[in-house]
């Protein structure tokens, strides 16, 4: 009987080692999966924002690819400070952008211009972030001119 008990004891110790090993593997696998999701989310946001008529350049509904309308960026900024806009950002735009920061910076000819389109940070103090930069063109409807810009997307996780 003592032999049986000692065999069981050894078996349980080995089982414990196996479980600890498995948990460590699962944890690192989950961490890697979370990073993949964050990267994917950054790509999705960049795709989604580029097609939204709230920002996209268009002429009689014919769309210019990778082009953002400066007037629409300003209009969105004005809209986001209204009550109606804040409701929309908290609901329908949060569904699309989630916890992220979206900023457009003009780099040429006027590098001082920038527009903060959207920002929502998670409440947790421990966040990691993933930044994506996409070159875009910026259309100015006042004088029918174009500028170079960068779309900065920061995804929080």
């Amino acid at each position: 009987m003592m032999e049986t008990i000692s065999v069981l004891l050894v078996f349980l110790i080995l089982l414990t080692f196996v479980v600890i090993f498995y948990v460590n593997i699962s944890t690192s696998s989950a961490q890697s999966g979370r990073e993949d999701i964050t990267n994917l989310k950054a790509v999705e946001i960049s795709q989604l924002i580029a097609y939204m008529p709230e920002f996209q350049c268009s002429s009689k509904n014919i769309v210019d690819e990778n082009c953002f309308d400066m007037l629409k960026l300003e209009a969105f900024g004005n809209f986001s400070i209204t009550t109606e806009g804040q409701d929309a950002i908290a609901t329908s735009y949060f569904d699309i952008f989630e916890y992220s920061r979206i900023e457009v910076n003009e780099i040429y000819p006027d590098s001082t211009k920038s527009w903060l389109v959207y920002e929502r940070k998670p409440e947790s103090s421990r966040v990691s972030l993933k930044r994506t930069f996409i070159p875009i063109s910026l259309y100015n409807a006042y004088d029918n001119s174009f500028a170079y810009g960068i779309l900065n997307i920061t995804v929080y996780s």
């Binding site: 008529p53 709230e54 309308d69 007037l71 629409k72 300003e74 209009a75 969105f76 004005n78 809209f79 209204t82 109606e84 806009g85 929309a88 329908s92 409807a141 006042y142």
Partner: peptide, 25 residues
């Protein structure tokens, strides 16, 4: 219903854009 809700937001942005155009053109 969701698409009409989105239309409200887009109409607000176009309205603000139109006001900017009216002020500057």
């Amino acid at each position: 219903d969701k698409s009409y809700s989105r239309a409200r937001d887009v109409a607000s942005i176009y309205k603000s854009r139109t006001q900017s155009l009216n002020s500057n053109i």
